[in-house]
Amino acid sequence: SEYETMLTEIMSMGYERERVVAALRASYNNPHRAVEYLLTGIPG
């Protein structure tokens, strides 16, 4: 799925699956924002 592709691409940058899933959830599946959250911390 498109979601799995995003997940895999972000994980390939060296992040753990659960952190990527949390970041995508926080960003409403916006991959650019999710990466930003992984770099700066997930808000909330």
Rank of each mutant, 00 (worst) to 15 (best):
H32K: 14
R25H: 11
A22Y: 05
H32W: 12
P43L: 12
R25I: 12
I10T: 01
G41F: 12
R25F: 09
R19W: 09
A34P: 01
A23T: 02
R17V: 06
T5W: 11
I42F: 14
L39P: 00
A22T: 07
E4F: 11
T40H: 15
A22L: 09
G14R: 02
R17K: 10
E4T: 08
P43F: 10
A22W: 07
M13A: 05
E16C: 07
G44E: 13
Y15R: 02
E2A: 13
N30M: 05
E9W: 15
E18K: 07
A26Y: 08
Y28I: 08
E18I: 07
M13E: 03
N29Y: 11
R17Y: 13
G41K: 08
A34M: 02
G44A: 13
P43R: 07
L7W: 03
R17H: 06
L24F: 03
L38P: 00
P31A: 09
E4Q: 10
M11T: 06
T5I: 14
G44Y: 10
A34L: 04
E2Q: 11
A22R: 08
L7P: 00
T5S: 13
G14V: 03
G41P: 06
T5G: 09
Y3R: 04
Y28H: 15
V20I: 05
N29G: 14
H32V: 15
V21D: 06
H32C: 09
A22H: 08
P43V: 10
N29P: 04
I10R: 00
E16Y: 04
V35R: 07
Y3F: 10
T8V: 12
N29M: 11
V20D: 01
E2T: 11
N29L: 08
R25Y: 09
A23M: 03
T8G: 09
T5H: 12
M11A: 04
L39H: 08
R19Y: 10
S1F: 12
E2G: 10
Y28P: 04
A23Q: 01
E36K: 07
E9P: 01
T5C: 09
Y28L: 14
S12F: 06
R19E: 15
E9K: 11
E36F: 13
L24K: 00
L24V: 02
M6R: 04
I10V: 03
R25A: 15
T40D: 09
M13I: 05
E2H: 12
T5M: 14
P31F: 15
S27M: 06
A34I: 03
Y28C: 15
V35C: 07
M6I: 10
E36R: 07
I42V: 10
A26R: 05
Y28G: 15
G14F: 04
S12E: 10
S12K: 14
I10A: 02
I42N: 10
G44H: 13
T5D: 12
T8Y: 13
R25L: 14
M11W: 04
P31W: 11
R25P: 00
E36V: 10
S27R: 01
Y15E: 02
T8W: 14
G14C: 03
L24S: 00
E16R: 05
G41D: 09
R33A: 10
L24P: 00
G41Y: 12
A34C: 04
A34R: 00
N30H: 06
L24I: 04
V21R: 05
R33P: 02
M13W: 06
M6L: 10
Y15N: 02
R17A: 05
P43W: 10
Y37I: 12
V20S: 02
I42H: 09
E18T: 07
Y15F: 15
E9I: 13
Y37Q: 05
T8I: 14
E2I: 11
P43S: 09
A34F: 03
I42T: 09
E16G: 07
L38F: 03
R17F: 10
H32S: 13
M6K: 04
Y37L: 14
Y3N: 04
S27A: 15
L24W: 02
S1W: 13
I10S: 00
V35A: 05
Y15I: 03
I10K: 01
A23L: 02
Y37G: 02
R33Y: 08
L7D: 00
E36T: 07
T5R: 15
L24Q: 00
E16K: 06
L7R: 01
A23C: 04
S27E: 04
S1P: 13
V21Q: 08
P31C: 08
E18G: 08
N30Y: 03
N29V: 04
R17S: 04
L24Y: 01
P43G: 09
R19F: 10
G41S: 11
P43I: 11
M6E: 02
N29K: 04
Y3E: 05
L38H: 01
A34G: 02
L7F: 04
R19I: 13
Y3P: 02
T40L: 12
R19G: 05
L39W: 05
M6G: 02
M13V: 03
E2V: 11
N30P: 01
R19K: 13
V21C: 04
R17N: 04
N29H: 07
P31I: 12
E18M: 06
R19C: 10
E9Y: 14
A26V: 09
N29S: 05
E2L: 12
S27I: 03
V21K: 08
I10G: 01
E9S: 12
R17G: 03
E18F: 07
S1G: 11
E36S: 06
Y28W: 10
S27F: 07
S12D: 09
E18H: 10
E4P: 03
N30T: 05
V35N: 02
T5F: 11
L39G: 06
L7Q: 01
M11E: 05
G44T: 13
V21S: 05
S12G: 11
R25Q: 14
T40R: 10
S1N: 12
L7H: 01
Y3A: 04
L24R: 00
R33Q: 13
I10M: 07
E9T: 12
L39N: 11
P31E: 05
A26T: 05
E2Y: 12
Y15V: 02
S27D: 01
R25E: 14
Y28N: 15
E36G: 05
Y3L: 06
L39D: 07
Y15K: 01
V21M: 10
N30D: 15
V35S: 03
A34H: 01
